[in-house]
Nucleic acid binder design. Structure first.
Lengths: 110, 110
DNA sequence: CCAGGTGTTCGCCAACCAGCGAACACTTGC
DNA sequence: GCAAGTGTTCGCTGGTTGGCGAACACCTGG
C-alpha cells in the first residue's frame, strides 16, 4: 500500500487543525487515538460508511493531526501526532480533549 | 437596539467553538478582543463588507465565544466571554490564541 | 425632520462539506 | 489464481458556508 503524505510539523496550520477537530466523528477518532494509539481505521466504532470514514481520516491526516502509516497486512496504523502538535501548539490538544469530555460526554463514553 | 441572545455558559458547545475559531477573520476578531475588549464591530481592521462582518460576529456570538451588548449610540460592545470559556473549557482559549501567533503571525501583527 | 453612522437582515451565488454506493487497489490466505 | 478483508477514489447529492450588495432599523446631531 502506498505511503500517504503528511504535512511537516512546522507546516501544521491552526485553522486546518481546528476545522478538523470541529466535527464529532473526527473528534471521536482523535479521542480514541488519544486513549490507544496504533489502531487500523475500522476499529473506531463509528457508524459511517467506509468512504466517509476514509474522508475523515484524510482530513485529519492532511491537517497534521494524525499519522497514517502502512501497517501489517493491509491496515493503516493511525497514530496521534501528539508530540509534534504539542511542540507547535502547546497545550492545545490536551485542552481540546478535555473540553470534549466536558461538552460531549456521550462521545466520551461511547 | 435590540439586545441579542447568547447561549448560556453551560450550553456552549465545543464543536461550535472550534468551528467558529477555524476561520481567519473570526480568529482575528477574537484575537483583537483578547488584546482589547469592548470594541464596536467596525474597529477590527478587517477588509470585508458589513454584512459579512455581521455574519461572522453572529457565528462567534451564537457559539458563545463573544458577547455583544448594546452600547452607547448605536454601537455593539463586543467582549470575549473569557471567564465563561475558561470555566467550561479550561486552557482552551489561551492555547488557541497562543497557537494562532505561532501559525498565523501575519494575522497577529496585522 | 433629515443626514450620517452602525449593524442587521434578506436574497443571491459560488464553493465547500459530509454523506453514500460502486468500483478499484492492495495484501493475506486458501 | 481467487476470495476475503481493508482502505481509497470517484461521482453524485443535499445542506452549509462565506462572500456581496441593497434595503432596513436604529440612534445621534444638525
Amino acid at each position: 500500500m502506498k505511503p500517504l503524505s503528511h504535512p511537516r510539523a512546522e507546516d501544521i496550520n491552526i485553522y486546518a487543525v481546528l476545522h478538523a477537530l470541529a466535527e464529532p466523528a473526527r473528534m471521536k477518532i482523535v479521542q480514541t487515538l488519544a486513549a490507544a494509539d496504533g489502531r487500523p481505521c475500522g476499529t473506531f466504532g463509528i457508524n459511517l460508511s467506509k468512504s466517509t470514514l476514509s474522508a475523515h481520516f484524510k482530513v485529519l491526516r492532511e491537517a497534521g493531526v494524525i499519522r497514517q502509516e502502512t501497517g501489517p497486512g493491509n491496515a493503516r496504523l493511525n497514530t496521534l501526532r501528539r508530540a509534534e502538535l504539542n511542540a507547535r501548539f502547546p497545550g492545545l490538544l490536551d485542552s481540546v480533549l478535555q473540553a470534549v469530555e466536558e461538552s460531549d460526554p456521550a462521545l466520551a463514553s461511547g
